[in-house]
Write a protein that binds this DNA or RNA. Structure first.
Lengths: 117, 117
DNA sequence: TTAATATATACGCTTGATCATATATATCAA
DNA sequence: TTGATATATATGATCAAGCGTATATATTAA
């Protein structure tokens, strides 16, 4: 794994990417429509930031039918995982991170991993 | 302390700032000439990145005679401190972070805190 | 006051990141 | 094949970060 600290922090330095990563950190696999709904943003915006996270090696994707599920890469080194965990601690009482979780929880018809495996 | 995760990660996302912060994390207070020598960069470059770190609330400065000593702010929340500690772990076997420490150790006539308090 | 050293800031330029929008691709169902 | 849905990418424009250079400020000593 050739993840550099600089590339990790660059990825985390954009709010949209940070919100996506922290949701995945707390919820596990999420598909693009879930992330789009939770963040309240247009689909192309979310997709492109997910592509950046994928190219940085921070997330991996898995297609299941028409949905593509993103999750934090299991190949991340321990220090990077710890940084994500601390970022959750540092943001969980702040907006918009708190609302993102609520929006996700209240989303109707979520294509959960259970229903489209 | 109104440090946001986004501003922390933005600060860490630039190699020069990351190198400065990690040196301070490991060595404590350092003055600009020590950082300049360790990184092997021109003084204005280092000064300007230190100013950005100061404005972000990540470091504090203390003038002692003609030297200005920078150190990681003690007002940082615990999660931010932990992230810095993990960043040290993730970089300590990599360049240029390793060489920075060596360059600093080999610097002649360091204006240590002891000699100019 | 003058000079020397350490540090900070200002200025013009360039490059890369991001955005909004449009369009392309992939899968599934009919 | 056609249509619908989910997702990805391309394109042109804008904007902010960063750089190199020059200069300003602050402190100390002579």
């Amino acid at each position: 794994m050739s993840l550099t600290a600089e590339s990790l922090f660059s990825s985390l330095s954009h709010e949209i990417r940070l919100r996506c990563l922290l949701l995945m950190q707390q919820e596990g696999e999420l598909c693009v429509c879930e992330l789009t709904h939770a963040l309240g943003l247009a689909q192309p915006v979310v997709s492109r930031h997910l592509a950046l996270l994928r190219e940085a090696g921070l997330v991996s994707d898995r297609r299941a039918g028409v949905w593509i599920h993103y999750s934090i890469s299991k190949a991340l080194p321990a220090w990077a995982h710890d940084i994500l965990a601390q970022a959750v601690l540092g943001t969980q009482t702040q907006e918009p991170f708190q609302s993102d979780l609520l929006n996700l929880a209240e989303m109707p018809n979520r294509p959960g991993a259970a229903c489209c495996a």
